[in-house]
Design a protein around this nucleic acid. Sequence first.
DNA 1: TTGAAAGCGCTAACAA
DNA 2: TTGTTAGCGCTTTCAA
Lengths: 324, 324
Amino acid sequence: MAGIRDVAREAHVGIGTVSRYLNGSGYVSEESRNRIETAIKTLDYQPNELARNLYRNRSGIIGVIVPDLEHPFFSKLSKYIEINLYERNYKTMICNTVGISNREKEYLKMLERNVVDGIIAAAHTLHSEEYLKINRPILAMDKDFNGQIPLVHSDHKKGGALAAEAVIKAGCRNVLQFTTSSKVTTPANQRHIVFEEICTKHGIRVRTVETNWNLFSHEHFRRYMQKEMVKYPDVDGIFSADIPAIACMNVLKQRGYKIPQDVKIIGYDGLDVIYMTDPPLTSVSQDIEKLAECCVDTIIRIIEGKEYESHQVIDVDFVQGKSI
Amino acid sequence: MAGIRDVAREAHVGIGTVSRYLNGSGYVSEESRNRIETAIKTLDYQPNELARNLYRNRSGIIGVIVPDLEHPFFSKLSKYIEINLYERNYKTMICNTVGISNREKEYLKMLERNVVDGIIAAAHTLHSEEYLKINRPILAMDKDFNGQIPLVHSDHKKGGALAAEAVIKAGCRNVLQFTTSSKVTTPANQRHIVFEEICTKHGIRVRTVETNWNLFSHEHFRRYMQKEMVKYPDVDGIFSADIPAIACMNVLKQRGYKIPQDVKIIGYDGLDVIYMTDPPLTSVSQDIEKLAECCVDTIIRIIEGKEYESHQVIDVDFVQGKSI
DNA sequence: TTGAAAGCGCTAACAA
DNA sequence: TTGTTAGCGCTTTCAA
């Protein structure tokens, strides 16, 4: 591995000059410039980022913490975060917490150890305090730290309202919604609060099944729905995230229900899979690309000391399928 | 940010002693040990990995290059690669090439710049030479560099044979298979060669549609299939990767075909989505978890200078759905 | 068992 | 316009 001093020797200049050339800082004569260029080519020199990082005290890497990269929501989010970070000259380090709070904790520690310059946290099995005691760039997606950590999320209130509207229009009288644990203070739960509120106002009976989903495999959801749906043979409407909604649809169809004639289903997230089912799933779609862009822009602002919005809400959209 | 010299001062010992304590290298007296421990706690000291990396000339990061993180195959692969790397004390840097060879090239350069210690390359839009001229740890998934770069892939020959067997058993006479561009030298194409070979031997007509898929959205596949399937109204069997197979299934159903009565479909990959369709898709399943484990184990062996297998093949499995 | 010192490869300040 | 030098924060000799 050729180093900067090899280049300097080869080009018959000082290392300072090479460094200045490399970084475009300060003067380098035409003469030196040419000699350095040829030296770099002949030696196939590549600057060692490890050394640069130490001096600059930054790694140029952003950590992205997600619960499960296999879940289509998070894989799409990660994809667009990576694309946006790349365009801004940052690299992406990924962490799947897979429900293990200790992994989340260890990745937070990467911040203090200068492995990453900032973290976009979209997984939250860990206690809030662990986040709050770290005084470095962190951005939270879909988790409210009482305003103490900048927050980005979809307009889940509108999302809940859109779902309620669809259920009302479809004439449902007796609906079931599946929520994640209400113990977690995520803005994502607001959709279910708003949904219930509006439905109830319209005389629709809403029952809520609170779940504790750490696993995201279809198999898991399917088994869960198989057990759960026998308890509610009389429902005529379902509201839930896309993946469990699809599991639910399949279980219902297996049990002889017609969708949407007997039971209407509305999903949430607007993932690609909603087009693959029969009937295609109607869903409230989150704008994942925009969420990613917003997360990236904000974390970089924080890192670079620019001003930023501490609470940003991204619009959601209604995607008409045929399940409601 | 407290540094090692702060700890040394606080504990009234030399920097060397603190370092020895931190790394468990060399002697540290009980006395010093205790003083250092309290000093670390009071100062909340965290070693700066940037400095360690420079000295050790390693980053502890492995780059993972995939074409599209949003594709369920690659998101699942990435997930398990990250999990395996984490267990081996490595971190994961992700790159989506999204079909842009320049991105792939830039990530390769990270290797030479010491940003990453090794690369697991599962995307191959870039020219082979770019890979071959880099003399650092690289592992290829599903791309044959003439044996010059260690290779991991599924047993695609067996996969093709399993698919052929299913098609024969089901009594198809006239099948269509969708392949990726045959210009790319990926072992994954072997399944189609074997499939055609066996089918032909059994008197089944096989037509092959060569595609150039860089995009992976369902929408894209659906439009593609809509255009393509009108050309082959007489086929009674389809063999293709899961995602296009599902798009195909939906297009066929829309055009009034019954699956599997009129047309039988067999997918490839065994992704979670095969359980979400109606009928559930029969598929040849790749063992993604094992692929990930194998990739991780091998790249680490290469990095650490241990011996390794330069060509590893992972078994595939037949998953019976109801589409054939 | 320890502390002082050299150096990992680079950047930037400084004197020339 | 340039080369020399002093760090960046750590690890590891090496002499005490």
